[in-house]
Design a protein around this nucleic acid. Structure first.
Lengths: 204, 204
DNA sequence: TGGAAAAATTTCCTAAAGGAACATTGTGCG
DNA sequence: CGCACAATGTTCCTTTAGGAAATTTTTCCA
């Protein structure tokens, strides 16, 4: 209902930027209408107030990033167009190090752990590569659990990750997972060959 | 201000109300450091306060959508990964793990960062895969440095890691490195092809 | 080392976001 | 017509984001 402000002293006329100012609300309302949802439906699903959503749709507020993110999820919106940008960048990213050649192995029935970067003893993250042997479908209930977080990246092969809270997770080369390691977990190779996995574990 | 609806509580469950926990700030700081910019540089360019940016990077505030958008533009960041919801938009779903298939990219002049496991926002380690483009041998004195530790694993290709303390380090697929990231560091692809690298970064 | 300069963080305060409840508008049915 | 009832808009109030400046931390040379 409010077309084009000529930029007088609108109560909340955007400061000097407002690219999204007018559009954002329209987009969200459109998405909501398309799904035939009411303000309350969406607000509840996104865990925000009805009135807040109303204000957002009418561009009466500058919503927080968090709220927009939740709305995006709720409404299943893709976002690229919201961030149109003039691209140019001249970056020079750099990192530094401590190298490790081959690590020391630590073999068990189902795993072959190869610790990486062992000479640096004061580190907090523990990286290692594991070979998950292609058998032993047996004991995937012997959960491993330890306080902390873990990141896992499948280098080759495929496997299934079993956890105590969720359904098994099929993973193939290139996939990665991040989880709370206090939740019971364990994995089994599902390919004929052994699976190679890179783990990074963080104790807390 | 957490009404917290039906949320029970996964150990590190997120998705539902999850403020943009740990990752958002890290991403922004990473991008800034890579460009060798100071808080003030970026803040000025994005027309926000220096302190505000500091708080955002340290996840001490829930920035507005508008501010994030401006930062994205200033830092030339692609954004899809911030809104990543793997699979369904049913927010009732909670998980304490995230599975990432092929990722969402964030490209710069020399790097192409692909963040992994982005929808789990409260994690402490930040994993991502980078493609180091096969050129730009130029500016390897622009060290990046940031408080914390980093682990790096070369998936494919080869590269040279330059640091301010040690001699350059030649690395090939399968090699890995662990280092204190407060030491200036940076790397350059030495093969004809781009190098693929898996990084796990931990802020302290 | 020390000490100045730069960068980052913290404090303090104001303006504004966001939620609850109330008011208004819109829509179907007797 | 007009009465429910639902959907949306608005007001009021509490909490919080975000900026200016002070404080602390880090960097950089002499």
């Amino acid at each position: 209902m409010e077309p084009v402000q000529t930029e007088d002293a609108g109560p909340m006329a955007e400061v000097g930027d407002a690219p999204d100012g007018q559009v954002l609300g329209q987009m969200i309302r459109l998405a909501r209408k398309e799904k035939g949802l009411t303000l309350e439906d969406v607000a509840k699903a996104a865990a925000i107030g009805r009135s807040t959503l109303s204000k957002i749709e009418n561009n009466l507020t500058k919503p927080s990033f968090d709220i927009i993110r939740r709305l995006m999820q709720t409404l299943d919106l893709k976002t690229p167009q919201l961030f149109l940008q003039s691209g140019k960048s001249d970056i020079s990213g750099r990192r530094d190090y401590t190298l490790t050649g081959k690590g020391e192995h630590q073999e068990t029935a189902t795993y072959d752990h190869e610790l990486l970067c062992t000479e640096l003893t004061s580190k907090r993250m523990l990286p290692y590569i594991s070979t998950i042997k292609a058998r032993d479908v047996s004991e995937y209930e012997n959960w491993v659990r330890h306080r902390g977080e873990e990141f896992m990246y499948v280098i080759s092969g495929s496997l299934t990750l079993y956890t105590e809270h969720y359904r098994p997770l099929m993973m193939v080369a290139g996939d990665s997972v991040y989880y709370d390691s206090s939740m019971g977990h364990g994995c089994v190779s599902t390919s004929d060959e052994d699976a190679r996995v890179l783990w990074v574990s963080l104790e807390i």
